[in-house]
Write a protein that binds this DNA or RNA. Sequence first.
DNA 1: GGAATAGTGTCTTTTAGACATTATCAA
DNA 2: TTGATAATGTCTAAAAGACACTATTCC
Lengths: 245, 245
Amino acid sequence: MVTSEQDFLASYDPSGYPPVGLTVDVCVFTIRAGMLSVLLVQRADHPHRGAWALPGGFVRPDETAETAAARELAEETGLEHLPAEVHLEQLGTYTAPDRDPRLRVVSVAHLAFAPGLPAPEAGSDAAAARWWPVADLAGDDAPELAFDHAEILTDALERARAKLEYTTLAAAFCDDTFTLADLQRVYEAVWGTQVSRTPFRRKVLASPGFVVEAGELTATGGRPAKLYRRGPARFLPTPIVRHDR
Amino acid sequence: MVTSEQDFLASYDPSGYPPVGLTVDVCVFTIRAGMLSVLLVQRADHPHRGAWALPGGFVRPDETAETAAARELAEETGLEHLPAEVHLEQLGTYTAPDRDPRLRVVSVAHLAFAPGLPAPEAGSDAAAARWWPVADLAGDDAPELAFDHAEILTDALERARAKLEYTTLAAAFCDDTFTLADLQRVYEAVWGTQVSRTPFRRKVLASPGFVVEAGELTATGGRPAKLYRRGPARFLPTPIVRHDR
DNA sequence: GGAATAGTGTCTTTTAGACATTATCAA
DNA sequence: TTGATAATGTCTAAAAGACACTATTCC
């Protein structure tokens, strides 16, 4: 029986195990034109040349996976520093031995929520970079996704949808100040369903620390709406449940 | 700017990056004597000699992390094959560069729920192996945990407690047949709180596919209870919420 | 019969959901 | 004034939670 201690000793010998590459991929969601969208880059090189992929890259020796994901995210979105309101969390790790044809690459996938961000620029490793509405990634003329990124995206979507139910993370999609209608539209965009107004407003306002009044009003075509900011709460006392339909 | 493609090329050269070890750790919970318990092994070698650790080991070249976790779990519990009712899922990946003093080791932690299992045997790499009530891992005479395993355990506990709210996984802690009182005791053991009977029973029986009647009765000191088996459902239509106190 | 445990009925309070009503702006 | 959007009030139905009551076994 091979024990883990023997494995450990074997690992001191570089020939004991084949090399393992450690990367991060980031599935960053934002809402653009009312649609849930994800940032993808088009690969300039083999393998999967021309296919669209989640932004990502290798974890450097002094980095944690999360640090590397934040760096990649800032680089790909062209920002000097990642804005504090961007939410970043680990999604899961993808370890199929043949997921990269060149060598064993293990990817720690991350999930990020961001308010409106500037249009991205292509890096030197990417032919192009753009926001894709997630609805456009399912149909017949959906682009091919590289590696196992379609699976990662599916998992990220499900995680994001579930997180809106019991956390305050929907506000991470909003600008610094926002109305309750803005927040409701986030839920509707992410879930792809209608949300009924009255229970939604009641629930949000009854959740301490979800939102706090900013003291200002919007100036739009209708009655001005109160503006809110993100509150300190991270979890909802009782969930906002989604319904099919 | 270092791009991920340059990183990829560098990784073909073994000297481009220091070697990365890929391991799994498994946080397997069961309920013994009414207490939520976790399997720990006592380390026989440095580093952290004598400290208690989560069972785990290296991922082999042909394995996924989940396959490796299932293998380690079966080995440590002394079982030939992992019983089908054991639930195993990925918890998260721990990547702090210095979490192992010998070389960079990235660990994909897993979470497992198991019904009553035999007392484990120590492997060749472990001085001892035993089930620890999680309540005994917090106090003053709690054992020292190796590496970052205390952090992993904390994350696993929180995940387990949350999962009972919206999934049917509590039944994974039960034997093949069980009573509703057994199931309620699972919730109470994992959450460490009281659960009130009437709403609990109503919720369980109103959740299609959570449990199905086995058609038999217990023969105990009181009125015989109906026995149930695990149903096909994996998620609850509405959550069973925990309350503090 | 009494203790112990399982199961059911019922009452009250809370919450969800639908919908009507009022409020405040711009054109 | 009209249209648009925000905010509030109200009614009904469903669910949660507490608790009492009944049922069935062993001693």
